[in-house]
Design a protein around this nucleic acid. Structure first.
Lengths: 352, 352
DNA sequence: CTTGTTTGCACAATCGATGGTGCAAAGACT
DNA sequence: AGTCTTTGCACCATCGATTGTGCAAACAAG
């Protein structure tokens, strides 16, 4: 190896090699050289040297000077979930296409951790922060605000800055209606046969529940309170709720609206505990999309949220000068049972 | 707001406020103050000020000086996949517990993009890099090596530095055997009824295929070449392979070994195109775990790779001084049909 | 009271890139 | 030839934290 530098080349190295000053090297390599009236030939020489020595600017130094880092943060509840990981994927694509670098972290839906994590990101001088699915978006907002960091909410809205979220009310309506219509006219669903499980007291759950209840009232005439079982987001709580229902009624409801795929896993856990039940007359609607769930042995109607649409919108809004703290709704999509949609995975290249 | 600083407090701000020098403030706040013989009372005063002014060190400045950033990189093929996103989740937990900050990026399995992305991370002076599932780990190695960056391979091995990977051979064997044993003695699987779909010419696929073929030979006596269909990782290629088989034979193989959940989605797409088939005599083994897939209307045996084990091992190995470029195998786990395992999602807190 | 030691801290250089300013040399113009 | 303008670049301060060094004041020993 001739060029085993072992340490990265700096503008000072290149300035010695080229016989020009560090500032000239810097200007050439960051594109401001025309403004500084550097001769084309000097620039070419320096670019050449940079190339052969594999120079790349030290982002920490640049960031320190310019108080920008080129990092854009995304704060998630968790990574290992289809919805949020596809947020990460889409977010990364957008950020990279702007020539910046994504930094994606998770905070377990814990308000305290959300703030702490935001502070960590801030200590790296990130340029913008996308707050996705946070339990306390306004808490994170405070942290951002004191250092003048641009930020925006996704998935769950806050009140201080703009929010881009799914149209949960409409999605809830669509899904509820699809469940109801799935039953044949001679064996229609009764109001007390359609339950909602999962979710908690956040904006998304509330809106979905509102849509659910509205459609129930419109199509089934009634909407008993007892049919709403907000069990939180933990899969095991959902499992317990199904278990309890089953204990009491000896079966599951004929129609089940599940608030998210995480809660849906609770249903699976319940089913694993009842291997001999075949749950013949069960229709599930789930507010999330997963291709495998779509092919389960009972009809599963799903909602796919428009992640690409939300991220795109969020970038548009955050670029605005003084955006109002309003809520931007993005329409989700209804997915019929046994549907295998394509996704970002299809962008995977096959090499080798 | 009394304390709307609008810009972050620095050690200089605190030094003025406390009447001591910046270096004293720095020493107090980064823990080296005992070594510098700072009075306890001075330290207390400064800590107090730091608290009330919400001081946090500028990581870019610190990193510039110390040529370390506190960032640890993870390079993935993609985010939106259960396996890799759970890598991200586990990785993040480990990194944060060491008081550092994770930076997770994806490079689409593209060797060029892998190197470029590594270079970007390097420009941020990351302290270590975990290379997960890379198509060209040794290419990334070159990039790391020239700047003296510690790195390690996960999931797919390289030849230059240590690699921590799944025991794909054993996993392949376990899964194949489980598929075969799933068939009753009076209707045993014939060698030409057990196919493998998906994967390509990488270490993981090769090992799984090797295990598959070995077990087939041992248990079924034969192992025809035609039963191996490495379709790459793209779901659509897998779909086409299933389609082609179905065209030719009018049915699917009775036993199918699928190389990954991504390829499994190809099977779903195929099935979506044949809504009236019920695929009664089909048993699938999939080298990945997904709870929904586990409950599909046909038996699905799955392999869950020990992500926690791999990450833990990788951190152990990378801390070693001069680790040898050997391969560390981590045993995966067989998951019977209709099993809902708990996962990192269960760590989600319910607040609100 | 003098000399030696310890305590407690300030000073200043440094990391690498940026950008304002200044100033010679080259060219234009009278 | 003398003045004015433009060209081309070097110099230097700066961003914020770290760290080696130096040096007074406080204290101890003789």
């Amino acid at each position: 190896m001739t060029k085993t530098s072992k340490k990265k080349a700096t503008i000072y190295d290149l300035s010695v090699l080229s016989g020009s000053s560090p500032s000239t090297v810097s200007a050439v390599l960051n594109g401001t050289w025309q403004k500084r009236r550097i001769k084309e030939s000097t620039a070419a020489l320096i670019r050449d040297l940079a190339e052969t020595h594999q120079y790349t600017a030290n982002r920490q130094a640049r960031g320190l000077r310019s108080s920008r880092s080129g990092l854009i943060g995304l704060l998630l509840p968790v990574h290992d979930n289809r919805y949020f990981s596809s947020m990460a994927q889409t977010f990364e694509a957008h950020v990279r296409s702007k020539g910046q670098c994504p930094i994606v972290v998770s905070a377990s839906r814990d308000p305290e951790e959300e703030r702490k994590t935001a502070e960590t990101l801030i200590s790296y001088s990130i340029d913008e922060l996308f707050i996705c699915g946070a339990t306390d978006p306004d808490g994170v907002h405070e942290v951002c605000e004191t250092v003048g960091l641009k930020h925006i909410n996704i998935d769950l809205p806050g009140t201080k800055v703009p929010s881009v979220i799914s149209d949960n009310y409409e999605g809830g309506r669509m899904l509820t209606e699809a469940i109801i219509r799935r039953f044949p006219a001679d064996q229609p669903l009764r109001p007390d046969e359609l339950y909602l499980f999962g979710g908690r007291d956040d904006h998304a759950s509330r809106e979905r529940i509102r849509g659910f209840r509205a459609v129930k009232r419109e199509l089934l005439g009634e909407d008993p309170d007892g049919c709403i079982q907000p069990t939180g987001y933990a899969p095991n709580n959902a499992r317990l709720a199904f278990e309890a229902f089953y204990e009491k009624h000896g079966k599951l409801p004929r129609g089940v609206f599940i608030n998210s795929s995480i809660n849906f896993e609770g249903l699976l856990r319940f089913m694993a505990g009842h291997p001999h039940e075949n749950f013949a007359d069960l229709t599930v609607g789930c507010y999330d999309y997963d291709p495998f769930a779509s092919f389960l042995p009972f009809p599963v109607i799903m909602i796919r949220q428009d992640v690409e649409g939300m991220i795109t919108k969020a970038f548009e809004v955050i670029e605005e000068g003084r955006p109002q703290p309003r809520i931007h709704l993005i329409s989700p999509e209804l997915v019929q049972p046994r549907t295998a949609l394509t996704g970002p995975l299809d962008a995977l290249k096959d090499f080798g």
